[in-house]
């Protein structure tokens, strides 16, 4: 493989890493190859991914994960179904879970935790509001009875999101 093609693959492996780290590393690999007169034999994408584990993803990408998790969490609040019975809140809960796992995979523990909190926050707010006005809600929306069991389920799934982010972020095998 030519050096330029190799470096291009390294960059792909480092997707999500801050540009300055990416550029510096590619320059370093290029200088090393120039000195030794050979293109590295290491799988370039694996090398890039290993360096992503070292540097982590950029702050912009972390923030993107955090911010996007909030509306996903909001849309997963099951009480929306009181107003819109056909609303796929469970689907959004699944999407939010996948989003948290992605944030944890790319960004590590802290990123997974914060993304999980961001997704759980609107659910917890919804839970508190509906807990306080449970009787009122049940009297208005007669077709959608909120029970203590449902509230507990929402609490559990909400608490699961940050926990999942934290645990999944710690499971990433750091390169040796």
């Amino acid at each position: 493989m030519e050096l330029d093609a190799y470096l291009k693959q390294v960059r792909k492996g480092m997707r999500g890493v801050a540009k300055r780290h990416k550029n510096a590393f590619v320059d370093e690999v290029a200088a090393g190859a120039e000195y030794r007169g050979v293109v590295p034999t290491e799988d370039p994408r694996a090398l890039g991914r290993a360096m992503r584990q070292v540097h982590g993803i950029s702050m912009w990408l972390r923030m993107f994960f955090w911010i996007t998790a909030f509306p996903l969490g909001l849309l997963s609040v099951p009480f929306i179904e009181a107003w819109y019975p056909a609303f796929p809140a469970t689907l959004f809960l699944m999407l939010a879970t996948v989003w948290v796992l992605l944030a944890a995979y790319y960004g590590g523990r802290i990123s997974g935790l914060i993304t999980g909190i961001s997704a759980a926050l609107p659910r917890i707010i919804g839970l508190i509001l509906f807990s306080l006005g449970l009787d009122l809600v049940n009297s208005i929306f007669s077709g959608y009875q909120v029970t203590g069991g449902i509230l507990f389920g929402v609490f559990l799934t909400s608490a699961m999101l940050p926990l999942l982010g934290w645990l999944a972020g710690g499971r990433i095998r750091r390169p040796e």
């Binding site: 590393f25 370093e28 690999v29 090393g32 590295p40 034999t41 290491e42 799988d43 694996a46 090398l47 290993a50 360096m51 584990q53 070292v54 540097h55 390169p175 040796e176």
Partner: peptide, 15 residues
């Protein structure tokens, strides 16, 4: 060493 072992190790030590 291979590059795959060296670069991440240098990166971690630097970090």
């Amino acid at each position: 060493l291979t590059e795959g072992a060296l670069y991440p190790a240098l990166g971690r030590l630097e970090k």
